[in-house]
Amino acid sequence: MRDSTNPGAPLLEVTDLVKHFPIKRGILIDREVDQVRAVDGVSFRVEQGETLGLVGESGSGKSTACRAVLQLIKPTSGSVRFEGREISGIGRREMRPLRREMQMIFQDPYASLNPRKRIGQIVGDPLKRQGIASGSELRRQVQELLERVGLSSEHYNRFPHEFSGGQRQRIGIARALSLKPKLVICDEPVSALDVSIQAQIVNLLDDLQDEFGLAYLFVAHDIGVVRHISDRIAVMNEGKIVEQGSADQVCENPQDEYTKKLLAAVPIPDPRESRERHSGSVQ
């Protein structure tokens, strides 16, 4: 057995993670002509209870990296250790108990909830599948979760279409938390929401982190939001991490050109500052 859980190890440690997608061409026989280097040697770690922000633009490979960490897609190479244990390349069955510990919140609250299922089922399914609760106990736990994320226990029997984008994202959060994970991977959890609702969700994630001691891998393209929620930030561009450091360090004293470019593009909600910035810069 290689169940080598190491108490001193970081919660999640990713080393030299690589995911290449082949580009194939050919009429009868597919030949691999090239590769898309979506994730090209990425290393980072997430400690217990901490938030690592992974920021980058579309196509930077950040979502692919998340999926490879969770083994939702098979990494080409590299190591993913969870509590010291290597999970890259292990079988589905071996992975299953670990799924309790690592959950995911998705970007699109309209596409990530099954429209035919009631909220109670959506949130309760992980509990049922992992054999944690059933019957009236399941219902009680789900209703408690719904209330914890700012919904009402009466929402148990409703369908996703009856909810706004922000409320749907709360449902996704309740589903991710139902198994009391140690790590939650949040893939652009607020970018589809109104700015006012973004703040609610960010604050909720903050509160839940304090309450349950969660660690987040928070993936987003908006470095403003990432800075607010993260302890540390890793900036990703073209499949590689170009800069990594504490949130304030990266945002206030960026070293990499790409990080600087990203920061300069964030709109500043202050007309005078914005005018100053434009008159000084070459757009």
Partner: peptide, 23 residues
């Protein structure tokens, strides 16, 4: 509320984002 709920990289980050309650 709309102004407050913006994350601002030009200012020190607040402990909590001011938010508009409800929907």
């Amino acid at each position: 509320g709309l102004l407050g709920s913006l994350t601002r990289i030009d200012r020190p980050r607040p402990h909590r984002l001011p938010q508009i309650a409800g929907s």
